[in-house]
Structure formats: C-alpha cells, structure tokens
Amino acid sequence: MKENFSGRSRFVNYLVPLCLFAASWPVGRTGGALYALGALILAGLSFFLFRHLVHQINQAEQRSCELDEQLIQSQKLAAIGELSSGIAHEINNPLAIIGQEVEWLRHLFETSTLQEEKDRGEFSDSLKQISSQVDRCRDITHKLLNFARKMDPVMQAVELNRLIDDMAALVEKEAKLNNINIIREFQKDLPLVTSDPPFLRQVILNLLNNATYAIEANGTITISTKDNKDGRVEIAVADTGRGIPKEHLKKIFDPFFTTKPPGKGTGLGLSICHGIIQRVGGTISVISQLDRGTTFTIRLPIAP
C-alpha cells in the first residue's frame, strides 16, 4: 500500500512539470519569447513546488513508518510479556519441586555418616550448586512475573522537573565518583502532567543508571525536559557513553535482551520502562551513535 503510494508520487513529481513545459512550448513559438519564458518559469516553479510537496509526503510517510514500527514493537512486547509470564508460571512449579528435593537430599545427607570425607565434600558442593541455580531461575521467573503483572497506574498531578531532579540527585553522588556529570536542562514553567509518579521515578532512575553504565567513567549525562506544544511533554536522557550498535538498537526494549555478562542484570530493565511508559499513555524511543552516546526520549501526554 505504502509502496504504491510513494511510487505514484514519484511519478507525479516528474510528469506534471513535464506536461506544463510541453504545454508552454507551442505558445512560445507563436506568442513570442516572453510567453515561453513565463511558461518556463511556471514550469520550473511548479517543479520545485511539487518536489517540496513530495518531500513533505515522504517525510510524513517516514513518520507513519516510525509510528507503525512503534505499534508493532508494543504489540510484540505485549505478546512476549503474555507468553513469558505464562512460561514463568509453568516453570515455577517444577522449580519448586527441584528446590524441595535438594533440601530433602541435604537433610538426608546431613543425618547420614556413610560416605567418605572426599565424597562428602563433592556431594555437598553439588547440592549447593543445584540450589543456587534454582535460586537463580527463581529470581528470573519472579522478576518476569513482576514485569508482566498488570498493575494499573494511578494518575495524579506531577511536577516533572522536580521528580526528575530528585532522581538525578540520587544518582549524582555515585556518578561523581566516576567523574560523570549530570547536566539538567529543564524547561521552566513546564505544565503539570497527569501521570503515575512512582512509575515515572522508576523509569527515570533506570535510564540514569543505564546512562552511567554506558559511560563507565568520565562523561556527561544531559537530562532535559520541554513542552512539545502538542499536548505532550518530552523528557530526554542523553549520555556520552559507548553507544549501542545498530543491530542491538531494535532489540533494546525486548525482555531478556542484555549486553551485560551472564548473572548481571536480567535484561528486563528497559522492557519494564517501555511497559510503564505505555501504560501511562506515552512513548519511549532511542537513538544512538557508536562511541558518541545514546539518547532516550520519552513523550508523555499532559492529560491522560
């Protein structure tokens, strides 16, 4: 559908000035050079006019493409959320049995005196390993359920600048230790936003934490707010960190996507943020350049 539309507009782009030019040609021959010149200017003008129009159409198309992508992304996330919470539920039950059997084995083992010293050491080491891996799985499934649970937001008036400033202050001390500066570029007289304050705090804190992680040391985080004048306000968190490779950018909001080493971080942080922002009626997007940094942009409706 979209392909057809843009193909047609490109065709129109060239056809119309050509026709105008052709129409002006015989006039120029019979009615003098002036007419021809006028027609030529007209044709040229219309050519530029159409080019401009087509450019606008293409831009609008790109925007709608982005919107489509966002829609697909959120539908995908909803589906994954549903699926993963189902799986987490199913896994919790066998996990509970494994955990209990380990505890039972440990109980039997502690009350027995049969095995040799060396075997005992290995046996108890294995048991410890099984139970710590069960703990690890449990951590994942419980976090996943936290992520998927449908908590309805409670909408109340939020002073956005102040809320962000509070969270920045919380991150600032640890950031300073690594020589990371936090710059606040808040628009004054930002309108009060109706949203869920603790949810927003969670998202801002998460983004600031990710930004410090991306910078590691020596860099700047710029956090800004502005009124978009379209019923929405915009929050941007920009870091001067290592940036995100293009192939990762599309997956960044997917649950379990992480670049951290195994065992650190579950890869749920950003998908939780995405879920939250969606539930309060906003959008979150990301742009990034390798070795330059990353910017997360949140757009929130002023009234729900």
Binding site: E90, I98, G99, Q100, V134, L145
Partner: peptide, 27 residues
C-alpha cells in the same frame, strides 16, 4: 502458588486473614 498476579492477590486479600507466597519458596 506458582501463579501470581495482582488481581488474584487482591481477590485473596478480600477474604482476609491470609498470606500470599510465590513458588518456589525455600522451606
């Protein structure tokens, strides 16, 4: 239970005098 959701939790709270724990749970 291995199945947790806020909806069930709220429903359970209505009956009062009970707790809610998620499986797996150490003994």
């Amino acid at each position: 239970t291995g199945h947790a959701s806020v909806d069930t939790a709220i429903e359970i709270m209505k009956h009062g005098g009970c707790e809610y724990l998620l499986k797996p749970c150490p003994v």
